[in-house]
Design a binder for these strands. Structure first.
Lengths: 195, 195
DNA sequence: GAATAATGTCAGTAACTACTGACAGACATA
DNA sequence: TATGTCTGTCAGTAGTTACTGACATTATTC
């Protein structure tokens, strides 16, 4: 049990993620992936059998995080603006961590329908957590009480949109960067939702 | 000058848009496109020469709209909530009109970098229009005056996110539909930005 | 009815690509 | 040293696919 096998596998998986996120699944050849990983096409097939299984393994191994709920059940302080900031920082952190996989799952939905669902678990969980948080804040009289789920959804969509917009890093809006956007959007939502 | 040639070309372009948006550029063959259009592969190549040129022609012919600025210089009534509603309805209308092309330009950025830029003109224009509108509303004392561009950007990102989320129509958030979201988000922003 | 333009038919090419088999060399462990 | 595990080499297969040429067919126009 030396780690050679695992190291080799990981190098292939990382090369696959890099190249497929850059050029698309059908835009990359198995040979290209293997040589990028410093290995042979033969080795690639010995490890993963098929090209599709390579991509599936990449999702299996390199996507973490079902830990959203716990994450900030502990960190919230029932102060709207501060909590919104915590929450959306966590969101961007998680999305950015699996940035390339998100890109792939967006583009290759046809190939991997089940993985799109899996990637979608995070946002779904976040929406639940955020909705519950809004409900409780409302009960405590610290937030307006109309439509908490839709408010949470709007907040998430704003940050989802900004994330997607930033994904290709094509600097679509040259005068706007992520961090000021986070701060200002949190302020805006805090103002909108404070009684 | 009978219209046969143009009709044939259009059928090929529409079939190409349908199939490429569904399966990706490399996931569709020229033969598939031709037969879907009820024509022959040979005819496809007689019209467009290459597969890539077919896709490029699809963008040339089927993407309209540089008319954003004029569109609602006329329709605005300097009533924040009503105007936000007008604006974001226009946004969704435009994005939905070229829905499939948006999808393609998101996915095939590598193949068509210049088309991504072109599709991006709409949002950019909208951001400008919206920013100017916010500035003037501020001067009229009908809106808070801090950071109009970032506020406009946040509003757009919320709707961009919702649009993207809706693009694959996979019903990602089963209890949320577009129209209620539009109404509630407009309310929310109006509340946040009213002095 | 003849000329013209557009499309179909069919066979084929050249390039690519996922994937395989046989064999040999490297490297660790024992 | 011997053995097993992992990887490289190389040649090759079978399937796919963008794209072409020669010729026949259909529809339109005059």
């Amino acid at each position: 049990m030396d780690g050679r096998k695992q190291v080799t596998g990981d190098r292939l998986l990382l090369a696959a993620i890099d190249l497929i996120s850059a050029k698309g699944y059908n835009g990359v050849t198995t040979e290209e992936i293997a040589t990028t990983a410093g290995l042979t096409e033969k080795t690639l097939f010995r490890h993963f059998g098929t090209k599709l299984n390579l991509l599936e393994s990449a999702f299996e191994r390199f996507h973490y995080a079902e830990e959203m709920k716990i994450l900030f059940k502990e960190k919230l302080e029932w102060e709207l603006e501060a909590d919104l900031l915590t929450i959306c920082r966590a969101y961007h952190e998680i999305m950015n961590r699996d940035r390339k996989l998100v890109l792939i799952s967006l583009r290759e939905q046809v190939l991997l329908p089940e993985f799109k669902k899996r990637m979608h678990q995070h946002p779904l969980q976040l929406l639940d957590v955020l909705t519950n948080y809004f409900v409780e804040m409302g009960e405590r009289g610290r937030m307006i009480r109309a439509n908490p789920r839709m408010h949470a959804f709007t907040f998430m969509m704003a940050h989802f949109g900004a994330f997607i917009n930033d994904l290709d890093s094509g600097r679509n809006y040259p005068d706007i960067t992520l961090e000021p956007f986070i701060l200002e959007s949190v302020k805006l939502f805090a103002r909108a939702l404070t009684p």
